[in-house]
């Protein structure tokens, strides 16, 4: 599903360099990415999502070579194929829960905001346990609730790939387990592939595969 080959990436400042010879993730798998801060976990997610482009090498998702797309194509590809769960939720304060979940549909013509999408958003919110908070402002929610909204937003376009950047990083232990349960359930329900960056080693056993970025410098594990 995800295939990276001979990838070379460097920030323009030259401070950071990432090299991956070969890395693949099969469709429907749940993969955790661990490693010390600054090792390139988030950069990897950004390269897969097409937010960043490599200096050399290729990043492919399914049949699409993301690294070969132009900016506009990458954005359209991202919004229709990638669901991104950000570490700090990154919800918009001025929108309520439902509007935050529907936000990707409102900011692009690639997704169509019809009755079906609205119904799916409501159902997804029900599944996530925030169905009664759709009209609440996102600022009035707890951390756990905000993360559920962020997951709903990522899942609503029914993406093939879900990238979660420390999605449980700000949560208490109870909420971490709960959020991961919900994320796994949704991934399974929608047949998506999950790539999650985490520092939480207790949760690793629940993933199909773990990629350690420290060890990956010597060869990805």
């Amino acid at each position: 599903m995800i295939h990276i080959q001979q990838l070379q990436f460097q920030y323009p400042t030259g401070e950071f360099r990432l090299s991956i010879d070969e890395f693949s993730i099969t469709k429907g798998s749940k993969v955790a990415v661990i490693g010390p801060s600054g090792s390139g976990k988030t950069t990897l997610l950004n390269l897969i999502a097409g937010i960043m482009t490599p200096l050399k090498g290729t990043v492919s998702v399914g049949d699409t070579q993301v690294s070969g797309l132009d900016d506009r194509e990458r954005r359209d590809f991202r919004i229709t194929n990638i669901g991104f769960v950000f570490q700090d939720f990154e919800l918009l304060d001025y929108l309520n829960v439902l509007d935050n979940v529907l936000h990707p549909f409102r900011i692009t013509g690639a997704l169509s905001l019809d009755g079906e999408a609205r119904a799916r958003a409501t159902n997804l919110a029900q599944e996530m346990g925030i169905g009664d908070k759709l009209k609440r402002n996102s600022n009035d929610l707890s951390h756990g609730e905000k993360q559920r909204v962020a997951i709903c937003r990522a899942l609503l376009p029914q993406p093939k790939i879900i990238l979660a950047d420390e999605a449980t990083g700000n949560l208490d232990p109870d909420n971490k387990g709960l959020i991961l349960d919900l994320l796994f359930q949704s991934v399974e329900d929608h047949g998506a592939t999950l790539l999650a960056v985490t520092h939480d080693y207790e949760l690793l056993r629940r993933f199909d595969r773990v990629v350690d970025f420290k060890q990956s410098q010597e060869g990805m594990n």
Partner: peptide, 19 residues
């Protein structure tokens, strides 16, 4: 931050201008 989020989600630069 909000603009970066919208970009990361996949919106085009023109969308920000439109907003």
């Amino acid at each position: 931050r909000e603009i970066q989020t919208i970009f990361k989600l996949g919106c085009r630069r023109a969308t920000i201008a439109r907003l």
